[in-house]
Design a protein around this nucleic acid. Sequence first.
DNA 1: GTGGTCTAGACCACG
DNA 2: GTGGTCTAGACCACC
Lengths: 126, 126, 126, 126
Amino acid sequence: MANDFSASKPIYKQIAEQLLKKMVREEIKPGEKLPSVRELAVQTQVNPNTIQRTYNEMERMGVVETRRGQGTFVVENTEVIDELKREMRAEVIGQFVQSMEELGLSKQDMLSELDRYLQKGDPNEH
Amino acid sequence: MANDFSASKPIYKQIAEQLLKKMVREEIKPGEKLPSVRELAVQTQVNPNTIQRTYNEMERMGVVETRRGQGTFVVENTEVIDELKREMRAEVIGQFVQSMEELGLSKQDMLSELDRYLQKGDPNEH
Amino acid sequence: MANDFSASKPIYKQIAEQLLKKMVREEIKPGEKLPSVRELAVQTQVNPNTIQRTYNEMERMGVVETRRGQGTFVVENTEVIDELKREMRAEVIGQFVQSMEELGLSKQDMLSELDRYLQKGDPNEH
Amino acid sequence: MANDFSASKPIYKQIAEQLLKKMVREEIKPGEKLPSVRELAVQTQVNPNTIQRTYNEMERMGVVETRRGQGTFVVENTEVIDELKREMRAEVIGQFVQSMEELGLSKQDMLSELDRYLQKGDPNEH
DNA sequence: GTGGTCTAGACCACG
DNA sequence: GTGGTCTAGACCACC
């Protein structure tokens, strides 16, 4: 899991987003234990302080909880994760539509451009 | 033209993007003169140095050129602007598709979700 | 390291060129850390903003990279530095040849004039 | 004679240098009349004020003289032009040697690099 | 008038 | 500690 954190976004947020996306994709499940701060710090080649901030951020959002002496866990409540999923989708779609409008495209344009893009070989295709 | 520059992105970049989008939407045309540094500074309620940086950035991108003692102008070459348009669209679409994939959606999901979103009343609709 | 920045070229560029030349001469090596913005500002008796600009310029060229909270470093990739060396040499030689041609000298003239100049005591000789 | 004055050097100096080089190459001869300010302004697509500055600069250098109501002329004294030729050559060679030294090349390197460059197809060759 | 550079001093997020 | 951004105000050369 070698990462490049070259982007301008703060590293702790990038890592948080990666984890949140895994939850949404259900690669990490409700109630599951996350790696310890130190372990994840080693995995990501990042300062433990930064991981600590990542976990703090996620706890503040209410998607993980820390149990003293045991570690950090995804919340059991599946509704929280479902809500997260809805929010993240809405966020992505909303931003997309707004950006396309700012570029002067109509709704029809958006759909057809997206369709065209997906037809002609998405490079990330699996 | 009162702006809110609350976002985390640097102001000089936000202003640059606004101008680039206007070019793409052809509200500003090739060869046209942009406002002077000082004038745009007044309009946007921002320090002239910040505008200066905006114009530098855009010149570095090759979409504007400065003529000494005369001002800053959009390049005449329409191909440059067309290329910009293509790049900005590809950027937005590419990011959208990548984000949606990371959230676990298939191509079909993307199109149907987008369609649904556009159907049920885009709040920015005109 | 007291400098004279009397020339008409902007200070931030002069400092950038000094650093680039040190890299080419391998006085500063790939991966090495450059002085912090504030430190170099003190050394060169220049405002920190000016140094900031110098480093921005060099990052834009791809010869240094900044690591958040850690500092500015010469890129590890030696090929980049080698390319820089080639470019800077080609630049100097190309300008020389062009200028001499514009002064009406043939290639033979250039070589003999240069040879003569180097024979009769280059004042910067070591 | 369509020119590009994109460089950072002032336009009036660029034009002056072009004229001086023509004198050195003897395309313009001692005593010869230069174009009028207005005429040269039209030829070069430049503001007449800028040409005026060019002529002032050259008069200050002592290579041209203005005769009231007649125009601007290259000085008759050939020694002045010869001296100019020597100066310009020395300037170009001196700068070249200094730059190459700053890039870490020895005198031998300079000669061999220049020779190599001239061998393998100077693009400006005639 | 125009853009370009520089200083001084400040605040911020990040590691 | 690090770099990044911003403001305020100034000076300059150029057109």
